[in-house]
């Protein structure tokens, strides 16, 4: 079987995979990182979103082999070494942006990329459109949108999101 070498949450792993093994299967089944979830089979729900080389990616839609040589960040690697939560995690908690928690890891990882990629500001409309690839069945998104808007200034070190 082919081998993949990749860095996950700062730690390097070399793993044997089948050609058809998906990145999410590598993470969940080979590395035991079960925080990344699988919610669909058509690349629609976004529960599996991780960062690959700093950019959000649906890990159900990427072969493990395609991740060879990359650096992957999952929800487990987001908090600081001392356990302090990332500002996006904090704002999700503060604004009750999660209920059952199943979509949450992918939602948080997508949201961080969304904020990172909009340094000039992020409107509510941009947030809602930016979440197009992530489904939540519990919250109605209302509080997720609020949490992301609240995380923007914290992540960019500024007072408030530009409207």
């Amino acid at each position: 079987m082919p081998q993949v070498t990749l860095t996950v949450n700062g730690k390097q792993h070399t793993v044997e995979v089948e050609n058809r093994t998906l990145l999410v299967e590598l993470l969940r089944e080979k590395l035991g990182l079960t925080g990344t979830h699988v919610g669909c089979d058509t690349s629609q729900c976004g529960a599996c979103v991780v960062h690959v080389d700093g950019v959000s990616a649906k890990s159900c839609t990427m072969l493990a082999l395609q991740a060879d040589g990359t650096s992957v960040l999952t929800i487990e690697g987001l908090a600081a070494a001392d356990g302090a939560l990332h500002p996006m995690q904090e704002m999700f908690r503060e604004h009750h942006a999660l209920q059952c928690g199943f979509c949450t890891p992918g939602m948080v990882m997508s949201a961080i990329d969304l904020v990172n990629s909009h340094p000039q500001g992020l409107t509510e409309k941009q947030i809602r459109e930016g979440l197009e690839g992530n489904l939540c069945r519990c919250t109605g998104y209302h509080n997720i949108v609020k949490a992301i808007a609240a995380a923007w200034p914290l992540m960019h070190g500024r007072a408030a999101a530009a409207e």
Partner: peptide, 15 residues
């Protein structure tokens, strides 16, 4: 604020 959120937000839920 919810007690259960810390585990769900850090990938430590147990589904």
């Amino acid at each position: 604020r919810r007690k259960e959120d810390a585990r769900f937000l850090s990938g430590r839920g147990n589904y």
